[in-house]
């Protein structure tokens, strides 16, 4: 009894801890997101939020839905596996609203050399040219159809 009286102040200090702990548990109950821990130690709703981000590149399937003529030509040529937006850029906006968003025609002088300018670092079997020597400034599409570039395969203009 006497001990309890003389140690009373210790219980007061301990009481502060208990109060703080209860307050912590109450606040925690409110602030931890509802979906936290659904699949693991994270907010499950974040997965859906990231999955709902907007798409910029429509994907070649969307292009081919309308541009079947180009898809047919391209499908037979050397660029069969080069997808549309690799050259034409991100066009989900165009696929979304074909009438009002018009793609800009790429400049072949910049575009073609990105892949085809010669460098010893590129794979040996990959077609490469020294632009100045190869065409002497004449635009690529003068001779090559970008959708089916091989000249002897009937792709020449």
């Amino acid at each position: 009894m006497n001990l309890f009286k003389d140690a009373g102040h210790l219980f007061r200090f301990a009481g502060l801890f208990v109060i703080a702990f209860i307050a912590f548990l109450v606040i925690r109950g409110y602030v931890v997101p509802k979906s936290f821990g659904k699949y693991g130690h994270y907010r499950a709703a974040a997965i859906d939020e990231i999955a709902a981000l907007p798409i910029k590149y429509a994907g070649h399937q969307a292009c081919e839905t309308c541009h079947t003529d180009i898809a047919t030509v391209k499908g037979k040529g050397m660029h069969a596996h080069v997808n549309c937006e690799a050259c034409h850029g991100a066009l989900a906006a165009h696929a979304n609203d074909p009438a009002s968003v018009q793609p800009v025609k790429p400049d072949t002088a910049v575009l073609c050399v990105r892949c085809h300018s010669a460098s010893a670092a590129r794979p040996k079997n990959f077609p490469q040219i020294d632009a100045a020597e190869h065409s002497n400034g004449v635009p690529c599409e003068t001779c090559h159809n970008p959708h089916s570039p091989a000249i002897d395969a009937g792709g020449a203009k």
Binding site: N2, K5, D6, A7, G8, H9, R12
Partner: peptide, 19 residues
Amino acid sequence: MTLGSTNISERALAIDEKA
């Protein structure tokens, strides 16, 4: 800071020392 306890009897201080 006293937390409302003014008990500084010898016994209480001895308990503090131990704690």
